[in-house]
Each structure stands twice: as structure tokens, then as C-alpha cells.
Design a protein around this nucleic acid. Structure first.
Lengths: 213, 213
DNA sequence: ACAATTATTTGAAAATTATAACAAAAGTTA
DNA sequence: TAACTTTTGTTATAATTTTCAAATAATTGT
């Protein structure tokens, strides 16, 4: 099988294209050019074509891309032609926000379990989901066939939670804490860091004032 | 002034090094080598040295880096030797989570204003902060000297909120909605997308099953 | 004081990623 | 049908980023 390596940045942009296509489709637009996609999401047309070319010839020269088809392809490529159940550990404010976040559910993610060890939280409900004690994590993720775990606990507990996730057979972990998590090879770990982007901003604003721009 | 361009990836990693150093310092460790930093945060030692070298010669050959000093330098470089007041628009679950998030405050960010147009939310308090109507945004950010706006509203309102932020003189915007935001040149926009990383995961898990790894 | 060791600097090489240019294909018009 | 326009897919070029390797500096132990 020819599995040419795709840059991660390309996959991330594919997510963005995909959502843009969703919007076009919702607005009844049937055809779109690389240039229009580029304008819509803020990249160059060449980039759009190059990115899509990794996965196949989806367009028609002189015409552009069929919105519905390309949307279907991008979703398929991203693995979003199926529902992905998630297990969130940490039912604090962030965990709560994630559970109720619409942009996740729209894209095919379903919160299938929320866990916490804080006794004031366990037993309470978020939507129609009951917060379970962490001890039930292994059992529930097995029953629900969950492969992706989400860490939404405080930094100091993050590694511990990750270990439990690994032991319970999670194949991928999305970590919202600023901690650096260690996992065995073969397990995918991704971090969403709330302050890294802010620090990128302060770095740049700092430069700006330094140079009086 | 010699302002050699620093890769964005380098700045992001600097944030990570900086937090690692904070932890070392807290544990009373005074000296650290590039290899130890590398192990701690999951990059290569060469990468650590190269990244730090953009900003100066902080290390001593044969010894390594002084933790306290390097921490101070990294914070300074990132602009975190001062407090940054933030204005959050959107007091839903995500906005609430951001307001109460400790990892932001630890790094010198202070939520100086929370805004919403939902009348069920306006007037309520998050901690010791009162949720204000969006109409008061221009006035308050001026008074509080806020340069960074945070978008935590639903996708459909994101651009509108960004426009208000720009008009009110924000120099940078951190956008938590999956919308693509357009801002004039000179204004910095950064996106934190909750589902892009998840879709990167599903892409990779998809490949994995496709190849039976 | 000197060798041995450790670990940074520095600069070059390699790899990766993005940009630009262009030929090929499809549709359109005369 | 032939010329023209549009827009893709692809190849080539450029820029960026990471890795590697040699040179240098400080420390420790003998």
C-alpha cells in the first residue's frame, strides 16, 4: 500500500477546509474553487490544492470542487464518517465546558463517559450524563468501546490520569492540562494548551512595543 | 536592532520549557542540562539548545543552565515579566472555565473583564468578577488597559465579536470558536481549536485500523 | 597541573514544508 | 471545431526547521 506521509499541518488544515465546506453546503453552494476555499479560511490557493492532492484528485480542472463530494471525502479522510465516543476525566469547569461543547458533537464526537474523583461531583449530571467515579473508568470505556481519553484535570493529576487511561486500553489521549505527559510508544498523545497561544501573543506584543511598531 | 526572526514553533516550545523550569525551580533544582529539559518535555536536546540560542547564550559548557536564571529569561522573553489583563467575551461554559482556569493566572494572565449579551448571564458573578453587557466592552477595556481579547462565544457570533474587539482597540485576539476570523493587518489573531487536535487523532487512528497496526 | 568528562556553541547538512510556476484538462464561446 | 478561459494537478524552486557534528569551554578527580 502506498502510504505517503502526510504533514500534520496538512491534516489540521483539512479539518478547517472541512468545516468551511460544511458551511458552504449548508448555504446551498455546490461548487467551490481552491481560491475560494483559500479566501474563506485564510491560506493560499496553492496550499489548498497541495493539501488536497495528498489524498486524491477531487477536483475538476476549469471547474473546481464539488462541495458535497469534497466534504464527504474530507470527513472520510479525517475518520469522521463514524461516531467517536470520548471519555473525559475531570468534571470541573473545563470538563463541563467540553461536555456541553457543541462544536465537538457536530463533528461526530460523543461524550460517552465523564469521570471525577471529587465526591462533590460524582453522581451529579451533565446533560443526560452522570459523573462517575474514576474507579469505573476501565469498566465503562470497555463497555462503551471508547478509544480516546480526554484529560481535563488539574496539572498535578494529569500524569496519573494518563496512566490509568493507558492501562485501560485508550489508544489516544487529548490532554488539556499544561503538563507534559509521558505515554508508551504506540499511544497517541495530543495537547491542547490554553496558554501557549496566549504566550505567543504576549511574545509578539512584547516585540512590538520593543520596536515601537 | 538585530531582530533575527524566531520560528513560531520555537516560541511555543519556549513556553513549555519555561513551565518545566518552573517545576524544577519549585523542586529546588538549580542546574539543568539541555538533555534533561529535552527528556522532561519530549523534544531532542539539540532542539532545546537551538531554541534557546535564538535568544542568547544562557548556558555554561560542561555545566548546563542555571534554572532560576533561565526561568527568568524565558519569562522575560515571552513577555511574562508583566501582568496581562484579558477581556473575555462569552460567559458560557467555556468562558466560565477560562475565567476560573488556574494555569492562566499562574502565568501572569488576569481576567480583567467578562462580557456577554445573554440577559440571564449579565450581572452574575464569576469569582469576584461581574459579567458585563457587551456594550460596555469599549469603555472597560480602555479603563483597564486591556490589549488582548478572548472570544468564547458560539461560532456564529465570533466574527461579530472580533469586529467589536478590533474597533475597541484590541491588539490581539485569542479565538476559541472554530470560526475563521478576519481581522485587519497588524492585529494578531490566534485560534485555539478544541476539535482540530481530536480530528488529528481520529485521522491517525483511522490510518492505524486501515493498516492493521 | 593535566587529563578526562561533560555539555554548550556554532555552523553546516538534511529533511521538511510552503510557494510559485506551468502544463493539462474541462468547459465556453464564436 | 478551434480558440479562449478557468482551474486543477504536478513539478520545481524556495524557505523554513530540524538534526548532526566539530569545536570550545568549564569542571572534577588524580
Amino acid at each position: 500500500m502506498k502510504t505517503l506521509r502526510v504533514p500534520e499541518a496538512t491534516v489540521s488544515r483539512l479539518s478547517i477546509y472541512s468545516r468551511f465546506l460544511e458551511r458552504l453546503d449548508k448555504n446551498g453552494i455546490t461548487t467551490v474553487s481552491s481560491g475560494e476555499i483559500a479566501d474563506g479560511v485564510g491560506v493560499s490557493p496553492a496550499q489548498v490544492r497541495k493539501d488536497l492532492a495528498y489524498f486524491g484528485d477531487f477536483g475538476t480542472r476549469g471547474v473546481g470542487y464539488n462541495v458535497k463530494d469534497l466534504l464527504k471525502y474530507t470527513l472520510k479522510i479525517l475518520g469522521l464518517d463514524q461516531e467517536w465516543p470520548l471519555a473525559i476525566v475531570g468534571a470541573g469547569n473545563l470538563g463541563f465546558a467540553l461536555c456541553t461543547n457543541r462544536s465537538l458533537s457536530i463533528r461526530g464526537f460523543r461524550i460517552a463517559g465523564v469521570f471525577d474523583n471529587n465526591s462533590t461531583r460524582v453522581g451529579k449530571r451533565i446533560g443526560n450524563l452522570e459523573i462517575k467515579p474514576l474507579a469505573q473508568f476501565p469498566e465503562i470505556v470497555k463497555k462503551e468501546n471508547i478509544r480516546i481519553g480526554v484529560i481535563a484535570v488539574h496539572t498535578s493529576l494529569a500524569q496519573e490520569v494518563a496512566d490509568i487511561m493507558v492501562k485501560s486500553g485508550m489508544q489516544a489521549i487529548l490532554n488539556f492540562s499544561p503538563a507534559t505527559i509521558n505515554v508508551p510508544d504506540g499511544i497517541e498523545i495530543r495537547n491542547v494548551d490554553l496558554s501557549i497561544k496566549l504566550e505567543l501573543i504576549t511574545f509578539n506584543l512584547g516585540l512590538r512595543t520593543a520596536q515601537n511598531l
